[in-house]
Design a protein around this nucleic acid. Sequence first.
DNA 1: CTGTGTGCAAACTCTTTGCATAAGT
DNA 2: ACTTATGCAAAGAGTTTGCACACAG
Lengths: 134, 134
Amino acid sequence: MDVAKRLREAGLRPTRQRVALAHLLFANGDRHITAEALHEEAQARKVPVSLATVYNTLHQFTEAGLLREVAVEGAKTYFDTNTSNHYHFFCETSGRLMDISTGDIRIEGLPEAPEGMAISRVDVLVRLTDKRRR
Amino acid sequence: MDVAKRLREAGLRPTRQRVALAHLLFANGDRHITAEALHEEAQARKVPVSLATVYNTLHQFTEAGLLREVAVEGAKTYFDTNTSNHYHFFCETSGRLMDISTGDIRIEGLPEAPEGMAISRVDVLVRLTDKRRR
DNA sequence: CTGTGTGCAAACTCTTTGCATAAGT
DNA sequence: ACTTATGCAAAGAGTTTGCACACAG
């Protein structure tokens, strides 16, 4: 599906910047990226976008359901182009995030949400460290 | 066990501030707290500690194995006084973090760590939202 | 045209750091 | 005394915001 159409369907006007960013994000399969990294990538490809716009765009995409935010500690926010229900590996050495296909993993015995609350999502983060590092 | 002794055993000199903070942290069962919240609490109890010292202390305690950091999205870092292996509820409405006892929950089919990597920890965060809020 | 999006720079939040002073042993 | 910790204020990182200009429909 073409990007402009996809944006329009999400209720977002397909501006140059949004189209360009959507391209970078969705062209090559699933990605996990920070705002800063995406901004640099855009610059490298000679797409003029300001960092502020990258942030705005990422949040708009997230609200529109095109992206998903992944919580890892540390200041940075990661955005995941795979919005389906799945979990992650996080390499603490490199800061890289990788998908774990949901098929493999299963959580048993999840407790009820407390009174008046509903479970909105379950995040699983498997932290990895490089073996040779202490 | 008294706090001063516990700190000494962790290799930390039991200074006024560290003892006072340790007291606030460990006196009333398991807690999940941010640096800022702990700082405010200390002020409220007339314990003079600077925010910088609170941060330093929390990190020193974490390195010493007395605390554990919990990754939730957003800028804030939460510290958990329960260092055993367990998971969390996170209420997105209030920002409150609660323990889930590990006994209840079980993860099946966890994939192998990629080549050269070792799993250091598995974090599970069950996100909750208030039912009446959308 | 008309309204929405963008860019810039400044503001903000949370966290860390450098260095002189104070406290622990 | 000698060493380590603390406090302050300033710096840093990541993110957000306000407002004038630009662009899509």
